[in-house]
Design a binder for these strands. Structure first.
Lengths: 110, 110
DNA sequence: ATATATACATAATTTTCTTATGCATAATTT
DNA sequence: AAATTATGCATAAGAAAATTATGTATATAT
């Protein structure tokens, strides 16, 4: 995924946020989109991505829809209503995390 | 540690940064300092902290010095030279992580 | 006397990721 | 034509980092 361990725990947030923007995406598309958006910084591995998608689906945050394009399989994922709410939560948590970490590493007023 | 999973992977960064400021600290002190700095947001658990300190010591990033205060044991940790360098790396990685995540969740120019 | 705070530690389990495979089709390169 | 790379899914074994649950011990507050 990256040389830094900090990305641990942020995969779900990334997936949900992308699906919040793009409406529907398939797995491989997510890996490519993340690579592009981060200029190669972040490479989501398949071993992390697919189990994560399956779990989000099992939890009712994602719906899946199978399609066949160019004789190849694609599984399109999209947010459920619950998934949309959870996306908002995750983004708040990320903002909170960043604020907290900045307070810890640059404690200007502490 | 927190309701958010995002803190996974950031414990070492937190420990190293605190020791970079405070010169030397003992485990319990670290948990209290973090709680105070984050206004209760982040509570480092002992099961996470002590193994982490032992590992950082084993890797040569921390030196330990045992003291007895009020008849109670304290293990003071401080950065080694290598530890100081690694602290700088970790802080760069954190800044990089925050930048990357912001590019992912608020892709203004994408 | 009892509970809370201080101070360390480890073991079992869970979560999340990496690494290694595996299958299959399409497109590109040699 | 053959081989490689890209597209697209999936899972299993193992590692890493945390949670949760204990355990020991002293000091302080109720």
């Amino acid at each position: 995924m990256s040389n830094s361990k900090l990305y641990k725990g942020s995969l779900n947030t990334i997936i949900l946020k992308l699906l919040n923007e793009q409406d529907k995406m398939y797995g491989y598309e997510i890996t490519q989109k993340v690579k592009a958006l981060t200029k190669g910084e972040l490479n989501i591995t398949e071993g992390a991505l697919y189990p994560a998608l399956h779990k989000l689906e099992a939890e009712g945050l994602l719906d899946v829809e199978v399609a066949k394009v160019d004789n190849r399989l694609r599984k399109y994922y999209k947010l459920t209503e619950t998934g949309t709410k959870e996306t908002a939560n995750k983004l708040n948590e990320l903002a909170e995390y960043i604020k907290t970490m900045q307070a810890l590493v640059s404690p200007k007023l502490a």
